[in-house]
Amino acid sequence: MSVFVALDFSTWTETEQFLKRNDLAGVPVKLGMELFYREGPAIIEKLQADNHSIFLDLKLHDIPNTVHQAMKNIASLNVDVVTIHAMGGKEMIYQAKQGLAGSSTKLMAVTILTSMDNTVLEQELGLPGNVEANVIRFASLAKEAGADGVVSSVHEVPMIKAHCGEDFLSITPGIRLSDSSQDDQKRVATPEEAKQQGSDFLVVGRSITKAENPRKAYEQVMKEWQHGK
C-alpha cells in the first residue's frame, strides 16, 4: 500500500522546493501532465535519484498504435505506475500493456474522473447508466484487456473488487482529510474510509500540498490510512 503525494506544481523548481522544505524526500509521488509536459523525462530521473516511487499520471487516450509506441518509451523510464483512459477501448488498453512488456510498470486505467457525476455523464457525454454502472463497465473492460487495475473513486472500490477480483488494483484520488476542502472533486473520501473500502493506493494532493504544515499533513494521512483516526 502506498500514498502518492500529487505534485501539482508548474515547474521543477517549485516541486523541488516543496519537497525539500517539507522534508518529503523519498515519499511516493504522483506526477501529472502539467509538470511532465514542461520538464520532460528529466524530472523522472531527478525524483528517482531522491528515492521517490513515481505514479506517472498521463491518462493517455489515442489510437492503439500511438499508445503502444508511447508506452514503449515510458517503459524505459522505470516508473511504478502509468495511466490511460479506459474510454480508449479494449484494443487501446491491450496495446498499452504490450508496450510496457518487460518492465515492472503497472498499467492503470482511469474509469470515470472524480470531477464527474451523473449529470455530466448523462447530459454532456450521453453515456447510459449512472457513475457506478459506467465505472464497472470500464473496469471490467480494462481487466479483460490486461490492465493491472483502475483509478476510481473510493466509493466504487468494493464494486470493482466484487466484479474484477481482489487482486485487481485500485488507485483512489479524491482523498481529503476530514478538515480539508473538497475543491473541484465531487466524489471524495478520507484515508480511513478508503482503507475500509479496500483501496490499494491513495493519491492525495491539496490536503497535503496546501496544508499549513505539509509534512504533518502527510503523516496524518499515513496515520489515518494505516490505523484510522
Rank of each mutant, 00 (worst) to 15 (best):
D80R: 11
V81Q: 01
T83D: 05
T83L: 02
I84M: 02
M87W: 13
M87D: 12
G88S: 00
G89I: 09
G89D: 05
K90A: 14
K90E: 14
K90H: 13
K90V: 12
K90M: 12
E91N: 06
M92C: 07
M92S: 06
K97C: 03
Q98F: 06
Q98W: 08
G99H: 01
G99Y: 02
L100I: 07
L100K: 10
L100V: 10
G102Q: 07
S104M: 14
T105C: 10
T105K: 01
K106F: 04
L107A: 03
A109F: 00
A109V: 02
V110I: 11
V110N: 00
T111A: 02
I112H: 05
I112M: 09
I112A: 06
L113R: 08
T114H: 10
S115E: 04
M116E: 13
D117A: 09
N118H: 11
T119Q: 11
L121F: 02
E122K: 15
L125W: 08
L125T: 03
L127A: 07
P128W: 07
G129Q: 07
N130V: 09
N130D: 13
A133T: 14
A133K: 14
I136M: 13
F138Q: 10
A139H: 04
S140M: 11
S140C: 11
S140H: 05
L141T: 03
L141M: 14
L141C: 00
A142T: 05
E144R: 13
E144V: 07
A145Y: 01
A145G: 00
G146E: 00
G149D: 13
V151F: 05
S153K: 03
V154R: 08
H155L: 09
E156M: 13
V157H: 09
M159G: 14
M159Q: 14
M159R: 13
M159W: 10
I160Q: 01
I160Y: 02
H163S: 14
H163R: 15
H163M: 15
G165T: 03
G165Q: 01
G165R: 03
G165K: 02
E166N: 11
D167A: 12
D167S: 12
D167W: 04
L169N: 01
S170G: 07
S170W: 00
S170H: 04
T172G: 12
T172M: 02
T172K: 06
P173E: 11
P173S: 13
I175H: 04
R176E: 01
R176Y: 05
S178C: 09
S178N: 14
D179A: 14
S180Q: 14
S181G: 10
Q182D: 15
D183K: 12
D184H: 07
D184Q: 09
D184A: 03
K186W: 02
R187N: 04
R187Y: 09
R187I: 10
T190I: 10
T190F: 09
T190C: 08
T190P: 03
P191V: 02
P191K: 07
E192M: 07
K195F: 07
Q196K: 13
Q196F: 12
Q197K: 15
G198F: 00
S199W: 06
D200L: 04
D200V: 08
G205W: 00
G205Y: 00
G205S: 01
G205C: 00
R206D: 01
I208Q: 08
I208E: 06
I208C: 06
T209F: 10
K210W: 11
E212C: 06
E212Y: 11
E212K: 14
